[in-house]
Nucleic acid binder design. Structure first.
Ligand SMILES: [Mn+2]
Ligand SMILES: [Mn+2]
Ligand SMILES: [Zn+2]
Ligand SMILES: [Zn+2]
Lengths: 142, 142
DNA sequence: TCATGATTTGGAATGATTATATGTTAAAAA
DNA sequence: TTTTTAACATATAATCATTCCAAATCATGA
């Protein structure tokens, strides 16, 4: 029987990156994760399984993965950087109350404004939706 | 003759905020400013004219103005908060090279995806375009 | 003018991230 | 397998943006 393994949303370590247990642990936590965790959340989660994990290693690995193109740094949260293993172009809904960040995978056709295209070259775009998530909406009705 | 005054892009101090020289100086710098300055840039600019300006006051004022709805905090730059006196819904182009943030005032019709509307209530949205600005594009061709 | 609560200020505190120095190890060569 | 070594992990210090704090000052209304 093949070792069970869910479809990896994460590309994995790139190029000549060493396959260290720390990196594999971080990679495993990130794989398929849609919570857009911060460095601290990664650290906390991975520390449990892999005691002796250093905070610096988390940052190092997050940077390495980002450079390798297996991870995206999100600037959404002004307070701390968040990471997204889903590197395909997609968008996000941010709850103004609980700060949860939810994927919006729907393809959004953005009519690139002429003014932007005229002189600049647009490589990518990202839509942020702000509002109140289902849970917070429900609470407000109490 | 009426006191000459350019059309204010900035709403001004809200409610019961005292009209202090510091706040007026910051307000004056921000008025019509489209550079999306950071707190430090505000501090540097205003310090010149208003010596003795404190960094804490800049933060206090930026917060007060934000709460009053005369200013918007931008989460675009992961390294530091940036402020936008233009509180009308508009979008931004971010140059991946020089990090410049340029307004995209064109109205963009975003087809709100069903999945987002279903359970959540969307209050606002913001599009970030990433690419290379005219100046950086030109440089690259050298 | 006076009283007073709001505001300013400098400096200390915090929290996220980065840098450094040193011991460790994955991986490739022998 | 053993050797070799650049890459890596770790602890800790340093940095940088932002917030907090307590004391001094000030704007505004009575
Ligand atoms: Mn995402
Ligand atoms: Mn703007
Ligand atoms: Zn919520
Ligand atoms: Zn540029």
């Amino acid at each position: 029987m093949k070792k069970q393994k869910k479809k990896p949303a994460l590309k994995g370590l790139g190029d000549g990156l060493k396959r260290t247990p720390q990196r594999l642990a971080i990679l495993d936590f990130l794989d398929g994760n849609t919570s857009h965790p911060s460095a601290e959340q990664v650290y906390k989660a991975v520390s449990k399984k892999y005691q002796s994990m250093s905070f610096a290693t988390v940052y190092n690995t997050l940077h390495a993965l980002t450079k390798a193109g297996s991870l995206k740094e999100l600037g959404i949260d002004p307070d701390r950087r968040r990471y997204d293993p889903n590197t395909a172009t997609h968008h996000h809904f941010i709850c103004l109350k609980c700060k949860r960040i939810v994927d919006v995978m729907d393809e959004i056709r953005i009519a690139l404004p002429k003014s932007a295209v005229k002189e600049c070259s647009v490589v990518d775009s990202h839509v942020e939706f702000f509002g109140y998530c289902a849970a917070c909406k429900k609470k407000a009705k109490s």
